[in-house]
């Protein structure tokens, strides 16, 4: 099982903060995007348009990152901490 986490504006896009997904074999981020798009099309669209950053186990990921059972995948909108 993998854990999916959504932050800030993305929580209202998918209407949840966290989700869990059973995957039989390791998947690429690209494949995971397809799985997510099947149930949350708007989220899938944002991932494909690179409007969100994605981390796996708290490290930034790219299209080729492999996701394995037990991983934590987080979807991160552009950061706005600190101050101007």
């Amino acid at each position: 099982m993998i854990t999916l986490k959504y932050f800030a504006s993305l929580k209202s896009v998918v209407e949840k903060e966290e989700d869990h997904l059973d995957i039989k074999n390791p998947v690429t981020l690209d494949q995971l995007s397809d799985i997510i798009a099947a149930t949350a099309p708007k989220m899938g669209e944002m991932i494909r348009a690179k409007k969100v950053l994605i981390s796996v186990n708290q490290e930034m990921a790219d299209d080729d990152t492999i996701i394995r059972d037990g991983d934590e995948v987080a979807f991160l909108p552009p950061f706005s901490g600190g101050t101007k």
């Binding site: 800030a8 504006s9 981390s55 991160l76 909108p77 552009p78 950061f79 706005s80 901490g81």
Partner: peptide
């Protein structure tokens, strides 16, 4: 910090709430 740290700011104005992204 602004570029790499996952922290987000939400502002509330008379127009409602918005997550700042830019």
């Amino acid at each position: 910090l602004k570029r790499t740290t996952p922290i987000w700011k939400r502002e509330t104005t008379s127009n409602g709430e918005v997550w700042v992204q830019d």
